[in-house]
């Protein structure tokens, strides 16, 4: 996306269009991976609610010892985690879908050649928005996927 802004600044119309399409493609790849992830969570009943089930998943670093309770993750804690997981990743994904809509609009504008080095404010602001969503993911990824992974 930052390359698209640069292309707009330096009046490279074709590069701007290519970079916008590339940004949208990679965004779709991310959302596709997210969809596969969500599908797995649904199949494993990890979605908080009436059908939530979380059993016999050992805490990382604590291999299950027969006859010892409390060595498994607490299901109610797990449900709390998955609530936060779905709200945070869901909100992030929603922002990405909005971003894809913005890029579609930017793409039609770029196609018509509306952007010049003097005026390309929509591209600039679209870039700011996209990188804000990026920063959110920079924090969400370690917080949701890597916390307590250590052995």
């Amino acid at each position: 996306m930052v390359l698209a802004v640069w292309a707009a600044q330096t009046a490279r119309r074709t590069l701007l269009i290519v970079m916008l399409i590339l940004t949208m493609l990679l965004g779709c790849v991310f959302l596709g991976i997210k969809a596969i992830e969500y599908k797995d969570k649904f199949e494993e009943h990890h979605v908080p609610g009436a059908s939530f089930s979380f059993e016999k998943v050992p805490i990382p670093g604590h291999p299950p010892i027969p006859g010892q309770p409390g060595r498994y993750a607490d299901p109610s804690h797990a449900q709390l985690f998955f609530s936060l997981y779905f709200v945070m990743t869901g909100l992030h994904a929603l922002h990405m879908i909005i971003g894809l809509g913005i890029f579609l609009w930017l793409l039609t504008m770029a196609w018509k050649g509306r952007f010049t080095p003097e005026w390309h404010t929509p591209v600039e602001i679209g870039g700011l928005y996209w990188h804000f969503v990026d920063i959110v993911w920079i924090y969400l990824f370690p917080l949701l996927y890597l916390i307590d992974r250590h052995p």
Binding site: M1, I135, I138
Partner: peptide, 18 residues
């Protein structure tokens, strides 16, 4: 983890967000 994340966020803000 959060320290590295903050460093990355700073890079994104400084350079990608100009």
């Amino acid at each position: 983890a959060l320290g590295i994340a903050t460093f990355k966020a700073t890079l994104v803000a400084l350079f990608f967000m100009h």
